[in-house]
């Protein structure tokens, strides 16, 4: 028998190669436009002159972009382990969302997305965020035009967690705590942006918190921040506070459990086939 030794190493779930990285970057650029157009749009641009239609355009295009980027991520390397882990973590995230009922931002799901992204890497983090949002929407009947915006923003939160610099012990927890607080606030503020133009453009709300088409970046940024403070800060701060509290209290055991499991799943363990070693073996039958 002349078998040679062959070794392969299994890779981490949803590994991001150069191509997938490019696709994610392009999709994220699109996503940023989808959120930020009211702020950065030029006064004479189509988006601004048809400001009440633009959110709907993005609500139609964004699902397509997310579909394309998720398909690309899967094509890059999602084996059964990656799928099952992302699925199960999404289930945890989804189960934690209706649990808080979304009341006053009490959404414990963020810790799963952030710590999952941290341990499993940016690609899986994006997957857990986006898929977790989708699954929880299906579970609670929350599918709607907002879903694509929630998916990509939650995906960014997980992606960012996966990109955080190396750290361990206390400094890792501190890093994650700071990131968690910022990410949760940013998520809330971003999510306000997609519907802010639609609800304020008609002019019934005070001008100071309304979107004024073509009023320029600085003015609209100020109005938007005022809008966020006036309407959603009451949700965003509890959300961030809860995430921070959870990371401080349970971050360490959750990270350990995730790492233990990713060892059990043998993501980076080599698979070797070797020719039989000659030895006196007992031959049966």
């Amino acid at each position: 028998m002349t078998l040679q030794t062959a070794t392969t190493t299994q890779s981490r779930p949803a590994h991001i190669g150069r191509r997938t990285g490019l696709a994610l970057a392009a999709a994220s650029t699109f996503g940023l436009f989808a959120f930020l157009w009211p702020l950065i749009g030029a006064a004479d641009s189509t988006a601004i002159t048809h400001a009440s239609e633009t959110p709907w355009l993005f609500a139609v295009l964004l699902p397509l972009v997310i579909a394309v980027v998720l398909a690309d991520l899967a094509d890059g390397g999602l084996d059964a382990k990656g799928i099952a882990l992302i699925g199960v973590l999404s289930a945890v995230a989804a189960a934690l969302r209706p649990f808080g009922g979304g009341h006053a931002g009490f959404e414990p799901m963020w810790i799963v997305i952030i710590l999952g992204g941290r341990v499993l890497g940016p690609g899986a983090g994006f997957g857990i965020g986006a898929i977790g949002m989708f699954a929880s929407a299906l579970l609670t009947g929350g599918v709607g035009p907002w879903l694509a915006f929630q998916m990509i923003a939650a995906g960014w939160v997980g992606l960012g967690a996966g990109l955080l610099p190396r750290a361990s012990g206390k400094s890792e927890l501190a890093l994650l705590t700071v990131y968690g607080a910022l990410a949760c606030l940013a998520y809330g503020f971003l999510l306000n942006l997609w519907f802010w133009p639609t609800v304020t453009v008609a002019g019934t709300l005070p001008a100071a918190i309304s979107f004024i088409p073509g009023a320029g970046f600085v003015t609209n940024l100020g109005h938007w921040l005022a809008f966020c403070i006036a309407t959603s800060l009451g949700f965003d701060i509890p959300r961030a506070a809860l995430t921070v509290a959870l990371i401080i209290a349970a971050g360490r055991p959750i990270l350990n459990a995730l790492r233990r499991d990713s060892r059990r799943a043998a993501f980076d363990v080599p698979v070797t086939f070797r020719a039989p070693v000659p030895a006196s073996s007992v031959h049966v039958q």
Binding site: L3, T272, P276
Partner: peptide, 26 residues
């Protein structure tokens, strides 16, 4: 074993003429 769990298999396992070295579980 070993495609999913990792590790080293020396020798050969065949099922219905298929070698597990060249045929992963799926």
């Amino acid at each position: 074993v070993p495609h999913f769990t990792g590790g080293t298999l020396s020798g050969r396992v065949t099922v219905a003429g298929r070698d597990t070295r060249t045929h992963p579980p799926r």
